[in-house]
């Protein structure tokens, strides 16, 4: 008889994204890093909080261009991250801060969390990166 050990040995990375549509130059790198980590067999979650909620509102990422004259919107980098297994979650108070209703979020955002869940995720992660 043999059995498979279900315990994951994957490293966990939590990226906290606090930047929003007002600082487009700060919005792409977290996705680049998340995608890179996902290619390295790392379990990656991006948690949006403070102004980060503004970039996961429906229709927002399509209008964010990291660099003036760039032909690729932030949506491309967001899709790339999600396609490679990056999980997106949002902190509930950041929705209230910007008067965003949960129905207005892009469907790629899988969970709405609060402070306790964020603390738990940070403690469970091998590393936390903050933007």
């Amino acid at each position: 008889m043999f059995w498979e050990c279900k315990l994951s040995e994957k490293k966990k990375l939590l990226i906290i994204q606090t930047s929003g549509i007002d600082t487009p130059e700060r919005t792409a790198a977290p996705f680049y890093i998340a995608t890179s980590a996902a290619t390295m067999d790392v379990d990656v979650t991006i948690a949006f909080t403070i102004n980060g909620s503004t970039i996961v509102k429906k229709g927002a990422a399509e209008k964010i261009f990291v660099k003036e004259g760039s032909n690729q919107s932030l949506r491309v980098f967001l899709d790339q991250a999600v396609e490679n297994g990056v999980k997106l979650v949002i902190c509930h108070p950041s929705l209230e801060l910007h008067d965003i209703k949960k129905e207005e979020l892009i469907p790629e955002v899988k969970e709405i969390i609060g402070g306790a869940a964020l603390v738990d995720m940070a403690l469970e992660a091998d590393r936390v990166l903050t933007f």
Binding site: Y32, S36, T39, N84
Partner: peptide, 8 residues
Amino acid sequence: CPLPVLKT
């Protein structure tokens, strides 16, 4: 970045 690692 991150396309070379992604494509690899």
